[in-house]
């Protein structure tokens, strides 16, 4: 098992390196291939009078006129070893993991990411619990009472959940409840207000996911209920409740947990639409604002962090799978 985990971690590092290469290529190299020059890249960082001194300073600070491989090398070295920047007045040492330096806000990227992460983590965990509980619960009810009114209503709601995006459900919930001032209150400062303010975003985000999970759980349960081991359990006189929850649901949950890990990882990387809809200052909103401001170091930082969450979630799910399902080989 240990070898398996180490191997997966090494593969994850390789994957993240590939992600850095691709994101670097998109933000720094592709524009040059499209005909931009270091000066025109710098122009986006300078006020509307485009002072030549300011343009020169931005080119120097970003190293836009350095060889591309040198720029990429500096970036990767910064992540693993740290690097030093100049803001024109002083030198700033950016400790590892140094994801760069924002010359928009004159802040290191990594602390900025850390300051935004609690918002996104709060959203992901709260919504994750909601969609897992309600999705699985309604899926089980639908499967057990297949064809009943409960099943049809549940699946109808699930269909709506899949069809309606968060930027529709969110404002609708706000209008219905009359609560327009969704903000983020840190958990440690006031847990009650933290939950109260995030309740609508949680519901809005969980609605779509819960719908998917309900449909997946229902399908998985129906498959499991037709399996031989369930028939055997019933033939042996096991109580129906135990058959449903100990045997059928356990079997149906395995793929659900796999998907849950991946979904949670994706949301942790930034629930972009939700954060934009509710103006919640998490990683997703940071990414959008940074894209609009051409704050490339921050965009790259969020992208890498999102990739990190996905990769870690993938590893956790694989390890979990290996533990709960003996059929999974560790080769």
């Amino acid at each position: 098992m240990l070898t398996y985990i180490v191997r997966r971690l090494l593969a994850a590092v390789g994957l993240l390196l590939v992600v850095t290469l691709i994101t670097f290529w998109i933000f720094y190299i592709l524009p040059l291939w499209a005909g931009q020059t270091p000066q025109s890249l710098a122009a986006a960082y300078v006020g509307k009078q485009q002072d030549p001194l300011a343009l020169r300073a931005v080119v120097d600070r970003f190293g836009f006129d350095k060889p591309l491989f040198a720029q990429y090398f500096d970036y990767v070295i910064g992540i693993v070893h740290g690097r030093t920047y100049s803001d024109g007045v002083s030198l700033i040492h950016c400790n590892a993991p140094c994801f760069g330096y924002s010359f928009k806000n004159y802040e290191q990227v990594w602390p900025t990411l850390l300051s935004r992460a609690p918002v996104t983590v709060s959203i992901a965990l709260g919504a994750g619990v909601l969609w897992l509980v309600f999705g699985v619960l309604s899926g089980v009810i639908s499967a057990v009472r297949k064809g009943s009114i409960a099943d049809r209503v549940s699946m109808g709601i699930a269909l709506a959940g899949v069809a309606l995006p968060v930027y529709f459900v969110g404002p609708l919930l706000e209008a219905l409840t009359g609560r327009w001032n969704t903000t983020y209150v840190p958990f440690l400062s006031n847990p009650f207000q933290w939950a109260q303010h995030l309740s609508i975003p949680w519901v809005a985000l969980a609605f779509g996911y819960a719908a998917l999970y309900a449909r997946m759980t229902r399908a998985g349960m129906l498959d499991a209920l037709n399996e031989d081991f369930v028939r055997t359990a019933r033939a042996k006189g096991v109580r129906e409740r135990k058959v449903l929850y100990r045997h059928a649901l356990r079997s149906a949950l395995t793929p659900i947990i796999t998907i849950f890990g991946m979904d949670l990882g994706a949301v942790l990387g930034g629930a972009v639409l939700l954060e934009v809809t509710f103006s919640l200052p998490g990683l997703g909103l940071l990414a959008i604002n940074s894209i609009q401001q051409d704050d490339f170091p921050v965009v790259m930082g969020v992208t890498l962090l999102a990739a990190f969450f996905i990769v870690v979630a993938n590893i956790v799910v694989d390890v979990f799978y290996a533990v709960v399902d003996p059929r999974v080989r560790l080769a």
């Binding site: 960082y45 300078v46 006020g47 009078q49 002072d51 001194l53 300073a57 931005v58 024109g88």
Partner: peptide, 13 residues
């Protein structure tokens, strides 16, 4: 000082 303060106008200059 627009080597460092890159945003503002430079009319005085």
């Amino acid at each position: 000082g627009q080597d460092t303060l890159v945003n503002g106008p430079g009319y005085f200059k």
